[in-house]
């Protein structure tokens, strides 16, 4: 039997339903006047999810087109870039990280390097000016730049 994408999904959902049920069951409930309590609703949902997952297993739909090879690599790489963007956002500052990330994404989307660099720099500076002066949002300047500016 070939395993359709929906079948795999259905097994994952069954797992999720079981996990939710176990987690909800273990909740320590203090005495209260609420006759339902915090357990019942998640338990109800996990039951419903399990039933729906079983129906999905019996009647799976078309599997669709899933990314493989080079495309999958690009997708993972994009998420890594965004993760690094998040990690450096505060310490390195908005301008530097945004410029770098914009250049990398532009390049991923097929811009030639010169265009990517110019576009990325313009995006970073333009959006910084718009956000700080236009909308009054304070964006992180970066911890490395503060000593240079002499502020503490």
């Amino acid at each position: 039997m070939k395993l359709a994408a929906d079948r795999i999904l259905s097994l994952l959902l069954l797992g999720l339903a079981a996990f939710v049920a176990v987690q909800a069951w273990q909740l320590q409930v203090p005495f209260s006047y609420d006759p339902v309590g915090p357990k019942a609703f998640p338990l109800l949902l996990s039951g419903l999810l399990a039933v729906l997952a079983i129906v999905l297993f019996i009647r799976p739909g078309a599997s669709g087109q899933w990314p493989t090879g080079a495309l999958l690599l690009r997708l993972v790489f994009t998420m890594v870039v965004l993760g690094v963007y998040a990690a450096l956002f505060i310490n390195l500052g908005y301008l530097v990280t945004t410029a770098l990330v914009s250049i990398v994404i532009a390049w991923l989307f097929g811009a030639v390097p010169v265009k990517a660099v110019v576009g990325g720099l313009l995006l970073a500076v333009g959006s910084y000016l718009l956000f700080t002066y236009g909308l009054g949002i304070s964006l992180p300047t970066g911890s490395w730049i503060e000593p240079l500016l002499g502020s503490n």
């Binding site: 965004l82 963007y85 945004t98 990330v101 914009s102 994404i105 532009a106 390049w107 991923l108 989307f109 097929g110 811009a111 265009k115 990517a116 576009g119 990325g120 995006l123 959006s127």
Partner: peptide, 9 residues
């Protein structure tokens, strides 16, 4: 290539 970084920003 300009649109996507803007969405991310």
């Amino acid at each position: 290539w300009l649109l996507v970084p803007s969405v991310a920003i």
